[in-house]
């Protein structure tokens, strides 16, 4: 089974990725801080687990989900599938309904499985002493990514300029910032950056490439980009909405007994 030989290569590649990070950390530890790291053995063990974990994770995705997901992205955006026998001249944005649904669903699903989001959610849960729930944050971010990618797909289909959407999004984020609970703001901004990594990027890139190749009048080089930008912007908004809703709910629950 070539999955096992591939795994070996992925482990080597992961080690290669981690080397600069390890060099910086241990370099500073030895030459600048000049102190032994506490629990060094346990930490090295932890690094090893992270390495192995990522390698298994990536190889598993590469073997099981990415080929099917990428093929699916190409098939769903194929004009024959989109038109279902209708004439090409009648093509409008609604013909792409399955693509929007796929974009929404895959955006949500890949974000839930994203390891770096899980890491940030665990940390936020610890720091907030449990008031931010791991699942609450992950679902809020996943909904943001889902909406973002669906809208990004709509943009590629309609061919409207990317910066209209992004700048409008910025305006919304700025307005929301003034109304959101102060504790959530930094975390919300962070969740924009953590959503798109190992799982989401390859599948979303395949979707963007498939669409921009098949939609008449689009070029994969110029229109294929931008989905990641959507996926990094919308979680900021959805996390702030999540915080506002939870604040509102806890306030209402607090008010109730006194009435």
């Amino acid at each position: 089974m070539h999955i096992f030989t591939d795994l070996f290569h992925v482990i080597l590649a992961t080690i290669w990725d981690v080397l600069p990070i390890a060099a910086i950390i241990f370099g500073f530890q030895l030459f600048v801080l000049r102190k032994a790291m506490p629990n060094l053995k346990k930490i090295l063990m932890g690094f090893l687990l992270v390495l192995l974990g990522l390698a298994f994770f990536l190889e598993g995705l590469e073997a099981a989900l990415f080929p099917l997901g990428k093929l699916m992205a190409t098939q769903l955006t194929n004009l024959d599938f989109i038109l279902q026998g209708a004439a090409e001249s009648t093509l409008n944005w609604w013909h792409y309904k399955w693509v929007y649904l796929f974009a929404f669903a895959i955006g949500f699903a890949t974000t839930i499985a994203e390891p770096s989001l899980l890491a940030v959610a665990i940390k936020a849960n610890q720091v907030s002493a449990g008031s931010i729930s791991i699942w609450g944050l992950r679902i809020a971010v996943a909904i943001g990514v889902a909406i973002g990618i669906a809208l990004g797909v709509f943009r590629i289909v309609t061919g409207t300029p990317l910066y209209w959407y992004i700048i409008t999004g910025y305006v919304f984020v700025v307005i929301q910032t003034f109304f959101a609970p102060r504790l959530i703001i930094a975390l919300a901004y962070d969740s924009g950056g953590v959503t798109t990594s190992t799982v989401t990027v390859p599948l979303v890139a395949a979707l963007g490439l498939g669409l921009s190749t098949t939609v008449p009048g689009r070029s994969p080089l110029l229109d294929g980009f931008g989905l990641i930008a959507f996926a990094s912007l919308f979680p900021i908004m959805s996390v702030m909405v999540y915080a506002q809703i939870s604040e509102w709910v806890s306030k209402r629950n607090k008010d109730k007994p006194t009435q």
Binding site: F47, L48, P115, I122
Partner: peptide
Amino acid sequence: LFVHGLNMG
């Protein structure tokens, strides 16, 4: 493995 390594390393 990743989640365990996260908390350990």
